[in-house]
């Protein structure tokens, strides 16, 4: 059986439409499968990545001329406006959960601790990237200072920004939390952290996508499990839109 040119062209046109199968993903077992695949990807990536493998650091000249701000660009509450007007002198960061010595720190307190400066690339889940310089307090230092329990498996970040009535939050596991480039940043490109980038304090967790980098952080909690918190998926976008908890890819 051989087919001539004319039939060929007609046949190609008919074959080009694609049916939708998105409903499949919304059923229970398939959603469970998608989550297992997510953790399988994490385990596979961990297999080839050493715990302390550093994200690439760039030179000052390689920075984005204009670093795109995304997600919340401000916090629309009178309380936040007041903090902003006062230069965040009254902002407190609570460090709690499964720790021996809960802390309450001002931005000035953080700035008197050991700091790390890094020029890194921010990769958004949408596909774009921007390079900027960040200075902040290593999260590992804060966790050590608070005496984090051996039983803690994740670190949860509570934020001042909200989508409607729902506060933003995120979580990372201990390997990412204790990574040397994971910092609570209070400076960006040599200036105090700008409002649209999460002033006065945001997370930088450089081996993960942008939605993990919680902004406007008010609290850090060491926890054993995130499933009993908020929507139970470990982060705002994980609960709201089904983004993967593992954001290493």
């Amino acid at each position: 059986m051989m087919i001539g040119r004319r039939k060929l062209i007609a046949g190609l046109g008919a074959g080009l439409t694609l049916g939708g199968c998105q409903k499949i993903l919304e059923t229970g077992p398939v959603d469970g499968f998608a989550q297992s695949l997510d953790l399988f990807t994490r385990d596979a990536q961990r297999l080839v990545t050493s715990r302390d493998a550093l994200a690439r650091e760039y030179s000052a000249a390689e920075r984005s001329p204009d670093f795109r701000a995304n997600g919340s660009r401000t916090v629309d509450t009178p309380e936040y406006r007041r903090h902003l007007a006062q230069g965040f002198s009254g902002w407190r960061l609570a460090v709690g959960g499964m720790v021996a010595r809960p802390l309450s720190l001002s931005i000035a307190d953080l700035q008197h601790m050991p700091a790390r400066t890094q020029i890194t690339r921010h990769d958004c889940v949408e596909g774009w990237s921007a390079i900027g310089q960040w200075t902040g307090t290593p999260l590992s230092h804060l966790l050590k200072l608070a005496g984090v329990s051996d039983k803690a498996r994740y670190v949860l970040f509570r934020c001042a920004d909200r989508y409607g009535d729902t506060p933003y939050y995120e979580s990372v596991d201990m390997i990412e939390a204790l990574h040397p480039q994971t910092i609570m940043a209070w400076r960006m490109n040599g200036q105090p952290l700008p409002e649209r980038h999460g002033a006065p304090l945001r997370l930088r967790v450089e081996r993960q996508l942008g939605y993990k980098h919680a902004k406007y952080v008010t609290g850090i909690e060491a926890i054993a499990d995130y499933r009993d918190i908020a929507g139970g998926k470990g982060g705002f976008w994980e609960d709201r839109a089904g983004y993967q908890w593992w954001a290493g890819i």
Binding site: T17, L18, A34, L37, A241
Partner: peptide, 20 residues
Amino acid sequence: HWATLPSNYSLAAGRKWHFL
């Protein structure tokens, strides 16, 4: 819509299919 999977816009679902 006829070229994307899923056919409605869902970045999360698109990424799940993509990594599978």
